[in-house]
Structure formats: C-alpha cells, structure tokens
C-alpha cells in the first residue's frame, strides 16, 4: 500500500494523542512483526497489529479508525509480552479505542462499543456487574434478540445468574468517580487542542 504523507501537523497530532493516552513511544517500533505473529485474533482482523503501529507513526488517523483491528483486540497482552522493543501494543490499542470514544467517532465493531457502554453503566448503577441485565440489554440493542438464548435457562437453573442486582453501599462515591473521570477527560481534550 502506498501512503503519501500530506499533512505533517495532522500526522503529529494523532500520533501525539495516541502516545499521550498510551504513554508509549511509538518510534521504538522497528516493524519486526512479532506482535502480529503471536496475535490470536489476527485471522479475524483486516489490518495486522504491526500495521496499526505503522499507520499511527505516519498519522493515518482515518485508516486506523476505520480498521476493525483495534476493536477486535481481546487485550490478551501477548504482543506486549513478546515485543523486543517493549512497546505495550495492548495499551496502544486501548489508546485508539479511547481516542475514538473521546472524539465520539463512529467505529466498526459497534457491538464491542455497545457492550462496553452497557458494562460500564452497570458498574455505575450498581457498583457491581449485573449479568442478566447486561446480556438482556445487549441482545435488545444489538438486535440479536435470541443470541445465547439457550444458555440463559441453563445458567439460571445452575444458580449462575443473579435475578436481582447487588447494590454496594457506596454508589454515591462511585458516581462521583465516574463524573470526575468524565470531567478530567473533557479538560484534557480541550486543553490538548491547539
């Protein structure tokens, strides 16, 4: 693939943002491909993990954010463990996801981001995960109404799904933590823009 670097300032902005979010230095990567060789999900990806790093190095924001790869990464940390240059690629993938979320950019693999939203909302509401609601809402909102529908009764019979959520007694504190995290993100986003 031939890439022409047109806009150096834009290139720097995207790369700098990803490096700031991940706290990783992407110049260290010399494209050996070890990350891709060990990635268990690579056969499902459209762009290989080492290519994602190269794209970020070159500031190819659009290509990175339209690739499925960052949202298919299962955070198994194999790449991070094996990188000879100690680049934490799992963290870089997190940073790409975080970048897209902060900028509210629509991404491929929407189900992954839908699940993420529902998952975090449950923590905020109850303090702990409430699987029945998570799965129910996910099926409803993703349109896969009958997904895993046969597993539900099995799990209920085995007592492996709670029928009601457990509320922790510090929900106020938890809501404040979520609110402060959101506020901090906004401050960083506005001060980060030149």
């Amino acid at each position: 693939m031939k890439w022409i670097i047109k806009d150096l300032s834009q290139q720097n902005h995207f790369r700098q943002k990803i490096e700031a979010l991940s706290q990783e230095n992407l110049s260290l990567c010399y494209q050996c491909g070890e990350c891709s060789a060990g990635c268990p999900i690579i056969s499902f990806m459209d762009v290989s993990p080492n290519q994602i790093i190269r794209m970020i190095q070159l500031g190819r924001e659009e290509e990175v954010l339209t690739a499925r790869t960052p949202w298919l990464c299962a955070s198994c940390i194999t790449c991070t463990t094996r990188c000879p240059k100690e680049v934490d690629l799992a963290k870089v993938m997190d940073a790409v996801r975080q970048y897209a979320a902060i900028k509210k950019i629509a991404v491929p693999e929407r189900e992954t981001t839908l699940l993420q939203k529902l998952f975090m909302k449950n923590i905020k509401s109850f303090g702990r995960q409430f699987e029945l609601l998570l799965i129910g809402k996910f099926n409803l909102l993703s349109g896969h109404f009958f997904k895993d529908v046969l597993l539900g009764p099995v799990m209920l019979r085995k007592g492996k799904l709670k029928l009601l959520p457990t509320f922790t007694d510090n929900l106020k504190q938890l809501k404040q933590i979520f609110a402060r995290a959101e506020a901090e993100e906004k401050i960083e986003e506005t001060t980060g823009k030149q």
Binding site: Q98, F119, G127, R128, D169, A181
Partner: peptide, 16 residues
C-alpha cells in the same frame, strides 16, 4: 462493599 474492578471494557475506555 468492594466494587467491580472495571474489567476489560473499562480500561479499554479510560485507563485512569
């Protein structure tokens, strides 16, 4: 009163 660790979805959204 422990709370959820956030699991993978949370660190993928906001490490802090």
């Amino acid at each position: 009163n422990w709370v959820c660790c956030g699991a993978s979805p949370t660190h993928q959204r906001d490490s802090i």
